[in-house]
Design a binder for these strands. Structure first.
Lengths: 339, 339
DNA sequence: CTGTTAGCGCATTCAA
DNA sequence: TTGAATGCGCTAACAG
C-alpha cells in the first residue's frame, strides 16, 4: 500500500523540478523572484513528492517557530474546564491562527509540569506566550524574563503592577456594581462569599464589595472560601446560618459558589430571592441552570482571548508595549431571577 | 539590569569549560564517556552561561521532538469545556510528562484550524498524536497516514473498524445497562433522547438502548437531538409532550440533555422520578447539580486519558500495536435520585 | 531570475 | 575519553 519511503526534502523537490533548492526555498517563502515557469514545475514537484517543509529545520534557520503557547496554570483540574478558560482559548486560537501563528496550549498543574514548561520556554519553544494563570504562582514569570520573548498575562495582580502587559476584567468595578444593585433594590444587610485567597480576582472582587459597602462592611458577614466550587457555597451558607434571618442578600465571588449558597438556603427553608437574594459572578453556563436563574456579572471571555492575542501579536510585530500596561475589559450586570 | 546578550550556545559552554562542544553534547545527553573533571567544569559553565539547549536544533539533529500533540476536534466550543475532555487532557499530560514527553494541545474547531494542524502534522511537529475527536470528520486521519507517526484515537467509530488503535468506553453496554435498570424498576414505556448524529458515541448509545428494548423499541419515542446541550433536552420533552402521560421513563444520551428534559418536565407539571424517571450519561459534574440529582452512567475520563497515553507510549517505544485494536473501558451505573 | 554557499544549534560518527 | 568532522532540512545573503 503506502510506500514506506522517507519524507521528501527540499532537495528532492528541487531535483524533480530541475532547479536548485535555493529557488524552491524562495518559492516556498513567497519570494517574488521566481519565474512562473519554475514556479509551475516546483508546484508540480511538491505535489508529486507530497512535500511539506520540516518544522524544526525551518525554525532553526529563521530563529522563529510561528507558534504561540497558551499556558494554563491551574491549581486543580476543575479550574481547567471553566467556560471562561475554554472560550478564551478558542478565541485566541482563532485570532492567532488568522495571523499565521499556531497556538498550542500547555497545562501547568503540578510542580513537575511547571518545571518542564520552564525548560521549554528557555529553549525558545515558541515566539510568544499567553499566560492564563489562575493562581498566584509566579515561578514561570521569572523564566520569561530570560527567554526574552513577548508575554501577555490574563490577570493583573492585586497590587496592580504587573511584570508584563495584562488584559483583565474590571473585577473590582463589577463586584462593586452588583453590590450597589443589591443595595438599590433595598437590601440592607449584605453578606459576601469570597473566593480563594490565592486568586488575584478573588481579592479584587472582595475590594469591590468593600467599596460598595463602605462603612457598613462587616467582616463577620464574609466567608472566605478555599476554592471556587459549589461545595464552598454550601459551606458558606452553613457558616452564615446563625445570622441568616437578618441578612437580605448574599453576594458571591462566582457563579458556582452562588449555586451552592442557593442550594443550601433552600435546604434551610429560605426562598431565593424573596427571603434572601443571591448574586454570582462570571455568567458561566450554569448561571442559567440554577433555579432561580442567577443574577450575575457577565464578562466576555471570548473578548478576553481575542484582546490578549491581539496585544501579543502587536508585540510580535515589534511594536513597543509597556510592561505594566493593563487593559481593562468591562463587565456588565445580568439581571435574572436570583436577585 | 538583565544584560541583553544573545542566548548562549553549546559552543559558548564548551569554550568556557575548556572542552570541545562535542563533549558538552555528550554530557548533556547522559553519555558516560565524559571524565568527571570535564563534567564538573561543564556543569559550572552551563550554570554561568544560563545555557538551555535549543529545541529546534535538537529536534532537527535527532529527528524527534519529544512532544506529543493532543488534538481536540470539536464542532463547537461548548464541547471543548466538557469535563470529560479536560480530565482526559490533564491525565494524559501527567502520564506523558512522566515519560519525558511534553504534551501540547491543539484545537481543531474550524476548517481553517484543521488545515493548519494538518500542515503541522505533515511537518513532523510531534512524535505522536492523541486524537480526541468528538466529530466524525475524518479529514485529519488521512494526514496521519503520510506522517507515519503513532496515533491513538479516543473513540472507535460506529462500525467498529478504526484506522488506528482506539481507547473507548463501552457506550453500547452502558446505555443498555441503564435501560435495563429502568426496566427492572418497573418502567414499561420508555422514551429515548439520542445525541447528535455525527457522534459515534451517540450512535453506539442508541444501539445500547435498542438492545435493551428489543421488540418494545418504538422509534416514535426517540428524539434525535442536534447537539449535546441542555436546550436539546427541553426540545425533546416538548416533542414528547403529547405522549408524556403514557411514558414511565426517559433515557437520555448525556447528562446535559437529561437536565433539559427534567427542567421541561417540571414546567409541564410532571414530577421526576415519581411521574417520569430520567437518566443521563457521563456523570459529569452537573449531574450533581440538578434537582433531583441524576442517575446516570459513569465513565472514568481520567482513566481514558491515561490509557490513551500509555498505549501511545508503547507505540513510541516501538512496540507493535495492531491498528484496529480497540481498548474498551468499563462504565458503571450511578444511582441517584432521578430514576 | 537563479545557483551557490554559509550558517542555524546540536547529535553523532570516526579517529585519535 | 575527547576533538574534529559531517549532516539534519532549511533560510538568506551573495554572486552571477
Amino acid at each position: 500500500m503506502t510506500t514506506e519511503r522517507k519524507k521528501a526534502t527540499i532537495r528532492d523537490v528541487a531535483r524533480m523540478a530541475g532547479v536548485s533548492y535555493g529557488t524552491v526555498s524562495r518559492y516556498l517563502n513567497g519570494n517574488e523572484h521566481v519565474s512562473s515557469s519554475a514556479a509551475e514545475r516546483i508546484a508540480k514537484a511538491i505535489e508529486e513528492a507530497q512535500y511539506t517543509p520540516n518544522k524544526a529545520a525551518r525554525s532553526l534557520a529563521q530563529q522563529r517557530t510561528s507558534m504561540v503557547a497558551f499556558i494554563v496554570q491551574v491549581e486543580s483540574i476543575s479550574t481547567l474546564m471553566q467556560a471562561s478558560v475554554s472560550e478564551a482559548m478558542a478565541n485566541a486560537n482563532q485570532t492567532l491562527g488568522e495571523a499565521g501563528y499556531q497556538m498550542v496550549t500547555l497545562i501547568a498543574n503540578s510542580e513537575e509540569s511547571t518545571q518542564r514548561i520552564a525548560q521549554l520556554v528557555q529553549s525558545d519553544f515558541a515566539d510568544g506566550y499567553l499566560m492564563f494563570s489562575l493562581s498566584e504562582d509566579d515561578s514561570l514569570l521569572n523564566i520569561f524574563r530570560s527567554a526574552n520573548r513577548p508575554v501577555v498575562l490574563s490577570e493583573s495582580n492585586s497590587h496592580n503592577t504587573t511584570p508584563y502587559p495584562a488584559v483583565d476584567f474590571a473585577n473590582t468595578a463589577g463586584q462593586r456594581d452588583i453590590t450597589n444593585y443589591l443595595i438599590e433594590r433595598g437590601c440592607a444587610k449584605l453578606a459576601y462569599v469570597c473566593g480563594p485567597g490565592y486568586s488575584p480576582s478573588s481579592i479584587k472582587r472582595l475590594n469591590g464589595f468593600k467599596q460598595a459597602m463602605g462603612d457598613r462592611f462587616d467582616d463577620g458577614l464574609v466567608y472566605y472560601a478555599d476554592d471556587w466550587e459549589i461545595n464552598s457555597g454550601e459551606l458558606a451558607a452553613v457558616a452564615f446560618q446563625p445570622r441568616l434571618d437578618e441578612v437580605d442578600a448574599i453576594a458571591c465571588a462566582n457563579d458556582d459558589i452562588a449555586i451552592g449558597v442557593i442550594n443550601q438556603l433552600h435546604r434551610f427553608g429560605y426562598r431565593v430571592p424573596d427571603d434572601i437574594a443571591v448574586t454570582g459572578f462570571d455568567d458561566s453556563p450554569i448561571a442559567l441552570m440554577s433555579d432561580p436563574k442567577l443574577t450575575t456579572v457577565r464578562q466576555d471571555s471570548s473578548l478576553h482571548g481575542r484582546e490578549m492575542s491581539q496585544l501579543l501579536l502587536s508585540m510580535l510585530r515589534g511594536e513597543a508595549v509597556d510592561d505594566h500596561t493593563v487593559t481593562m475589559l468591562p463587565t456588565t450586570i445580568v439581571e435574572r431571577q436570583s436577585a
